[in-house]
Design a protein around this nucleic acid. Structure first.
Lengths: 246, 246
DNA sequence: TTTCGTGGTTGACGTGGATCAACGGTCCAT
DNA sequence: ATGGACCGTTGATCCACGTCAACCACGAAA
């Protein structure tokens, strides 16, 4: 069932130093000479087709992954079949950090579109980060950022109402697309309403209704997965001043 | 406003190798010789009185902390005054990991009772973990475990109903008390209903009602903050088979 | 002891979002 | 083009939890 690596993979190898994601990805903040040393770190690259798993909960942990192209979701399945999407990941972001603690992955990573990742053997990462100071710091920052991000999601799930959650989600997406050089105001969501709902702790109907409401209010224009943000200030206001305050 | 370190602190210094938390804390899994080298890592210890902050959101990040005695909560405050408790921490657990990413703490850490922490200067940790392999691995595992834990909370907040959340919370507390050598079935909660509610994304009244319901059903005995678990299997069943399934 | 403040419980009622259901749009494969 | 699978939208109804309010338990201070 394991996707076999295409024979051409070695020839496709691209150094971190040549990669245009350098400012988003693991190398961020490292010196040029340090980045050059990273090239030994990224072994192969691996292509994942839409809907396929990069890894599954229970898989032995061997590597972490940097997304080179495409996007992913991570999710956890409860015994009774309920799914909780724990995150959406875009280019330059890391996957697999959950596996370090138990040496087994604790969630599923699934491609939302045909994607490609850089495979970083964890043993090599440990080894190299003992000598390359910038790598050690940067890796710690990546993990810490993940923790902070999760706290943000917990805040969203624990204390925001449906429309606030969706507004926060859209603003977050906008900000991440911007960081990747895309328009802050117009983008294409790769996930379904159901996946958004799972991530935000809402049902897909609620997500759909909130999209429609935002459109009626002139905050956004929605056409299926294509989103245009018309009033970013209005969206931000939604988060800071929830509907009626006592 | 900063709590000053008592003059006697140096004399109170206790080596990791002598600490009875060694199996829960950062040294877990390290060899004896490695643990000996940790002693240079833990600079001072610091006492925090109940309700006082160990650090606040916005504080510059310099150190992480291992809880030696007592317990803490971490929370995030939204602009409009809403509070989200992001975690409860017990002895042997680490605090402050959120600060690494931006070199600024992103949440508040508040003592739930009079407590004491070991202060671990982050710069020293980085330095030492470059030479002590076991420390590097263990530190990565601690961060990864935090990420996995947060995913668990996200699952709870995103896809469980009130009683499932409280059952999961109680089982988690029980398991953590057990790991510390206390009774799995009888313990004292250090946090208020409101704090539990914030953590679980519920109002304090809902938490209180769920406690009462569990008591009526013979699952637990509640007396204020004192909890006795009478039917652990029943609690577990609650999580796996939520009320009515379609 | 009384008083006061904080935290916890319980009841009555209201509502945001879940649920159930019907239908429409888009993209494939045939 | 046609049928079917999936995805999204919208309306009607329901109910779990929030809200509001009253009251109680406990510990600290006077």
């Amino acid at each position: 069932m394991k996707a076999t690596v295409p024979i051409t993979v070695a020839s496709l190898k691209v150094a971190c130093s040549q990669c245009n994601l350098v400012e988003l990805c693991l190398p961020f903040g490292m010196s040029e000479s340090e980045i050059d040393r990273l090239d030994e770190l990224v072994g192969a690259r691996r292509k994942i087709k839409r809907q396929q798993n990069l890894y599954r909960a229970g898989d032995p942990f061997e590597a972490i992954y940097a997304i080179r192209a495409g996007s992913f979701k991570t999710d956890v399945l409860l015994e009774d079949g309920r799914e909780q999407v724990t995150g959406f990941q875009m280019t330059g972001e890391m996957l697999g950090l959950d596996g370090i603690s138990t040496e087994t992955h604790s969630c599923n990573a699934i491609a939302l579109e045909d994607s490609e990742v850089c495979v970083i053997a964890y043993s090599k990462l440990e080894e190299l980060s003992r000598v390359v100071e910038g790598l050690q710091l940067q890796f710690h920052k990546v993990m810490s950022r993940e923790i902070v991000r999760d706290h943000g999601v917990m805040t969203l799930l624990g204390s925001m109402r449906a429309e606030e959650r969706l507004a926060a989600f859209l603003l977050n997406m906008s900000q991440r697309f911007t960081a990747r050089g895309f328009s802050p105001a117009e983008f294409h969501l790769r996930m379904t309403r159901e996946e958004i709902g799972s991530y935000l702790g809402l049902k897909l109907e609620t997500v759909s209704r909130a999209f429609s409401k935002f459109q009626d209010e002139g905050l956004i224009a929605v056409q299926q997965k294509h989103i245009r943000i018309l009033d970013i200030v209005g969206l931000k206001r939604l988060i800071q001043h929830p509907s009626p305050r006592p």
